[in-house]
Design a binder for these strands. Sequence first.
DNA 1: AAACTATACGAACGGTCGTACTATTTACTC
DNA 2: GAGTAAATAGTACGACCGTTCGTATAGTTT
Lengths: 205, 205
Amino acid sequence: MSEQVADGRIRRGDRTRRLVLRRAVDVASVDGLEGLSIGGLATELSISKSGLIAHFGSKEQLQLATVRAARAIFATAVVEPALQEPAGLGRVRALLENWLEYSSDRRFPGGCFFARAAHEYAGRPGAVRDALAAVDEEWVGLITRTVVEAQQVGEVRADVDADQLAFELTAYLDSANLRSLLLGSAGVYDLARTALARRLEESAP
Amino acid sequence: MSEQVADGRIRRGDRTRRLVLRRAVDVASVDGLEGLSIGGLATELSISKSGLIAHFGSKEQLQLATVRAARAIFATAVVEPALQEPAGLGRVRALLENWLEYSSDRRFPGGCFFARAAHEYAGRPGAVRDALAAVDEEWVGLITRTVVEAQQVGEVRADVDADQLAFELTAYLDSANLRSLLLGSAGVYDLARTALARRLEESAP
DNA sequence: AAACTATACGAACGGTCGTACTATTTACTC
DNA sequence: GAGTAAATAGTACGACCGTTCGTATAGTTT
């Protein structure tokens, strides 16, 4: 409740923190969360290394804050607009289409932040990896639940395995994201759209 | 032709080079090609940094050699056994199944070497990125051509878009690889197998 | 035996990394 | 105004980075 105290000192800190994280998510989407460097970040933003790290405590905490910031951007760009759609097949389509635009519009310069980061940490333990795994499960879980909702309103056949369908749909997304970056061509997004449309048609009642 | 000169000096060098690369591909599959460190590699192998780098010239050359070594391992594990199968749907299935085993058996400790490395370099230019993009195109191209062959022998419908099908099939593979690492569960490979089988059945004449 | 070549070594280079500790500046309270 | 708290800056540290250099060793050639 008493959040809007408007203490100028704290506001200044928040502003700096946001400044750092805005840059950090972009850098990390290209160079990875390991590629984040405190010195490099500070130089780019014309602030001191010590002043920067004082906001986060350690590099790992900075990385975790960067994951949270990226999640917020993702939620705003992809999830929230889709939740305007009524539950059902339309909402599933909105989530998938928003994702493709989030990727192809390069909301992060390196494509999907989470695809980049998840592959970076998939093979080794730690808090960062756990955070990334949680976001991934959250996203796939959202697709799965939205598919189940679409079944409940009769827009997806009841015998469809929602987990299976969510796996395949998200697989198309990730593949289009990577290949568009690797080939430097946006044509793969059409392959993904074709695959998504076909797979959803097959699931219609 | 005159390759088997058996010069003891060169044999010793080849042995060291192979030793380095065998370790390098494993390290890179977990920590990435950027995570390769000359000093770290040298320490693990009980050789000197300078002796190690003398074989490759620079870190980037070491990275490129690591990509080539990983490609050779991949070819041996996945491609060559499948080419024993006669051209057709069986060969397509063999390629896909071999890939799943290559991933789930952790032929590289960090899962698929190329998934890890491609995401690492997808967003930035350079020779390493180009090499990884080439391997990716080679792999997807192989799937596509094998599908076309299957069409020619009448085991896949002629109206199937081979590029589209290859996109979807490889998408399942990559997704299973990543999620198995992230979730620490092998169950996603079954999702991939189900998706692959279904998609191929749909393409049957 | 002498000349040559490939491999491997140890030491040092300039840089950058993350982090800790110590001012200094800025903003608010009383 | 003095006092306090938060944000920022400055400095230094040890560790590691990739790379270069000169040198020693092992193997081949003449």
